[in-house]
């Protein structure tokens, strides 16, 4: 919005009080909101990505170990099928120790009977002990479905052992290090945190730039109208709506003129009353 008519440097304020300072500009407010949303989005996305990866990764590791357990299960069950009871299968100890050697992450492989008594264990000291009730319970599940459990810092994958009658004789479980899985996914966490930081910085700048641009226009427009108002009121002339402006701009121009008109009129009226007052 511009104003026409003569310009004077005198009385710019046109009797209006000094402009109020802008402490929290619109751009700042909206930037704060938008950047908070951005931060939140990146954090949640990173969080979900991390957990998803963790589940895919750990299930991949688990599937490898469940394959190993399955191999052991087959061999033990073949032996069971020869007609011996589980506790008599002396060669199982060798099978377990051989399988453990193949992988450094395997902490222990053990075979227990249906009551939970450890019959064979790569950790020979544990033989004769009891496994947890959760494992005894797990061994009663679907005989061809591997079960997975966590026990403090070890992860466990196991399968029930079934004899020739189809009856569960016990279970075989493999314990592997949870730290291994944590290490596998830990690197990603760091990478994700870094990425979140970098993208937050970059796109915060984009948001700021965009918002200052957007609200800069709003601000300029408001300032322009304000300026026109001040000028017309203090100096005089007419406000004309900005080219291409809408109804609001037209009405505002009318507002400015009307205000000016009112002020002028009242001033004139005051002068007139004064004159009449003095006349007497």
């Amino acid at each position: 919005m511009e104003k026409i008519g003569q310009t004077s440097l005198a009385a710019m304020s046109g009797g209006l009080p000094p402009p109020r300072p802008v402490r929290w500009s619109l751009a700042r407010k909206v930037s704060l909101a938008l950047i908070s949303i951005l931060l939140f989005t990146l954090l949640v996305a990173g969080f979900f990505a991390y957990f998803k990866f963790e589940s895919v990764y750990s299930s991949q590791v688990q599937s490898r170990y469940s394959f190993m357990v399955f191999t052991i299960k087959k061999r033990v069950e073949d032996s069971l099928n020869l007609g011996l009871s589980l506790r008599q299968l002396r060669q199982v100890q060798d099978i377990l120790e051989h399988e453990k050697q193949r992988d450094a992450q395997v902490l222990a492989v053990e075979v227990y009977d249906h009551r939970g008594e450890v019959l064979f264990d790569t950790d020979r000291g544990a033989i004769g002990g009891k496994v947890s009730d959760a494992l005894v319970e797990a061994a009663r599940g679907n005989p061809s479905q591997a079960f997975g459990l966590a026990d403090e810092d070890t992860l466990i994958v196991g399968l029930p052992l079934v004899n020739a009658l189809g009856k569960v004789e016990g279970g075989v479980v493999l314990r592997y290090s949870a730290v291994y899985v944590e290490q596998g996914v830990g690197g990603l966490l760091l990478e994700l945190a870094k990425a979140v930081g970098v993208y937050l910085a970059i796109f915060a700048v984009v948001a700021l730039a965009g918002l200052y641009l957007l609200f800069g226009r709003v601000g300029r427009k408001l300032a322009g109208m304000e300026h026109a108002l001040t000028e017309v009121l203090s100096v005089g002339g007419h406000a004309v709506p900005e080219a291409g402006g809408g109804e609001f701009e037209e009405h505002f121009a009318e507002f400015v003129d009307k205000t000016r008109e009112a002020i002028d009129h009242i001033r004139d009226a005051t002068d007139e009353v004064g004159r009449l007052d003095r006349l007497a």
């Binding site: 099928n81 020869l82 007609g83 011996l84 004899n163 020739a164 009658l165």
Partner: peptide
């Protein structure tokens, strides 16, 4: 195997 049959 007879053993298995006995178990069953």
């Amino acid at each position: 195997r007879y053993y298995t049959v006995g178990q069953l």
